[in-house]
């Protein structure tokens, strides 16, 4: 690959990385897993003056569950780490379902969860799971840390809410208040292809009723779609055939797909409702079984 000329820095601490970004004045890019950035450099779609490689900064590679039940994913946690994580398998079904569907097995060994969210590709799987889970990103800059809710984090295609001198150091999934359910279904023409359409679902139930719901859609709009109307329609009652069908229709209505070589807009809408229905039916069956 023959990218445009750039400077490469490999800081050993977050403070050093942030001062490099500050000095870069908006012309520097953070390199984590590089699975989106490096291809963009190769194709010369991106031409940053500086790459700040954060891979040598200690303490960013983790996924853990705190005592309160919140889940924390460090900036250098790879997709594959989540795929193999026992914490995720046991406690976070939405992420567990999505992890094996992200890109392809090779990309998953290198690419990062937080990097993928920051990349803000409307086709990115993790933004959808973060919105469905109502998670937030912890950003650190020269003036300290701040939390940015996932639903506000992505501001447009390939645009996020970070300031140029901030680094997203962690993704946080808040502690649940009820029983946790979730799923992720994606239609892709081939492993590693961008999603034709994908649906992320995160539910919390208590006493057989849905007490919180998050639904987000991948690949069917100029950004990740927060299908909150569909999600809200589920809250307050048990899952029924009628409520599931209704949610499917509302989610399809929330999608803003374009017709392209992955399928027509109407096909993508149909996939959204079909997949949402399938995930909710699975949850419904498993909760019935559990009860």
């Amino acid at each position: 690959m023959y990218p445009p000329r750039f400077n490469y820095e490999s800081p050993k601490s977050l403070a050093e990385a942030i001062s490099l970004l500050t000095a870069g004045g908006g012309e520097a890019k953070v390199l984590a897993g590089g699975q989106s950035l490096v291809p963009m450099l190769k194709l010369r779609f991106a031409s940053p003056e500086m790459l700040v490689d954060i891979n040598n900064i200690p303490g960013l590679n983790y996924v853990r569950r705190d005592a309160d039940g919140s889940i924390h994913i460090g900036a250098l946690c790879r997709h594959e780490d989540l795929e193999k994580s026992e914490v995720i398998a046991e406690h976070q079904p939405t992420i567990a379902a999505a992890a094996p569907l992200v890109a392809d097995p090779i990309v998953r060994t290198r690419g990062t969860f937080v990097g993928s969210v920051c990349h803000a590709d409307p086709q990115g799987d993790w933004s959808a799971t973060m919105i469905a889970l109502d998670g937030h990103i912890v950003a650190q800059g020269p003036n300290g840390k701040r939390n940015i809710p996932a639903r506000d984090f992505v501001t447009g295609p390939f645009q996020n809410a970070l300031a140029f001198d901030e680094i997203a150091i962690e993704a946080v999934i808040p502690a649940p208040k009820g029983d946790v359910h979730g799923g992720y279904l994606k239609l892709e023409r081939r492993v590693g292809d961008f999603a034709t359409a994908a649906v992320a679902v995160a539910l919390e139930t208590s006493g057989g009723k849905v007490i919180r719901a998050g639904i987000a859609l991948t690949g069917v709009g100029g950004r990740t779609i927060n299908a909150n109307v569909a999600a809200d329609s589920l809250v307050g009652s048990a899952l029924t055939i009628e409520s599931i069908t209704r949610a499917g229709e509302l989610a399809a209505a929330a999608a803003e797909p374009r017709s392209d070589h992955r399928g027509s807009a109407s096909y993508k809408r149909h996939i959204v409702s079909t997949f949402l229905t399938r995930i909710l039916n699975n949850i419904s069956e498993s909760t019935v079984k559990a009860a």
Partner: peptide, 26 residues
């Protein structure tokens, strides 16, 4: 035989012919 073409054929009961078109926005 991409999935969207197979689905469209089943829905419409009609053949799908030619190179997959690059459809314009609906």
């Amino acid at each position: 035989l991409l999935a969207d073409r197979v689905y469209e054929a089943i829905q419409t009961g009609k053949d799908i012919s030619g190179a997959p078109p690059i459809k314009t926005e609906e």
